[in-house]
Amino acid sequence: MSSRPDNLRAWALCAPAVFALLGLNVVPAVRALIEAPPRPLMAELSSWAIASFAVMAQTLLFCVPTLLFEIPIALLLAVALLQRRAALPAERSDRLTAIAAVLAAFAWRLVFGGAIGSAPSDAPDWTMAALEVWRTLPLATLLLFAALRRRGTPLAEVATLDGAASAQTLRRVHLPLCRSAIAALTALHVVDYLRALHAPLISPGSADRAIWTVLVMVVAILGFRVADRPASV
């Protein structure tokens, strides 16, 4: 049980960020929800429900192939990075991590910021999913690498000593360790696709967008709650 001084110290650390997040993110979003007009009448409700169902189906249609492509590639890259890091002396391995972090950040912003990576409007759906993999792969690799950094190498060594093949190690050791990162990645993709397909989610004057915002919040909360659980191997 935490003591009172500990509570005060922790709250003092959290307070500035809490005020910033409340003032800049949460309160404006809630205000936009309140300012949205009441829900549409029954006749409009059916068309809204059909449109919303279509957006949801389209989101799943994009998310599932994206994650199926992205997670194995990112996992293999993260494991390769981990093995390379383990083979290096400590000071050089720190540099490798630093370089990977910065390059991932830069690649992520570069493809999101410019025209690079954008698909023509008549491109088929699978092209969009493949482009999404290309865009977010550095971030995904870094997330999985962060999840593996702490316990990945010793556990993999123990598994190898026990006679596990590399495929078994990948499936039984590395994949469970990455569960929280994969959950966070899934939540990010769902939110991003919902934003792209139904953006902007909040604007005064549209009740359906306000409802979608609540849905996005629920998805994000569920995703990050799973992400916060400790992994068990």
Partner: peptide, 30 residues
Amino acid sequence: ALARLTFEGRAMIFALLVIASATSPVLLDH
């Protein structure tokens, strides 16, 4: 504080962080 300290109200602040992540001005265009 969230990662290293145990204190009363941690779950509440964590929930606020999650909600604030989903309601970013850039993400929601408000």
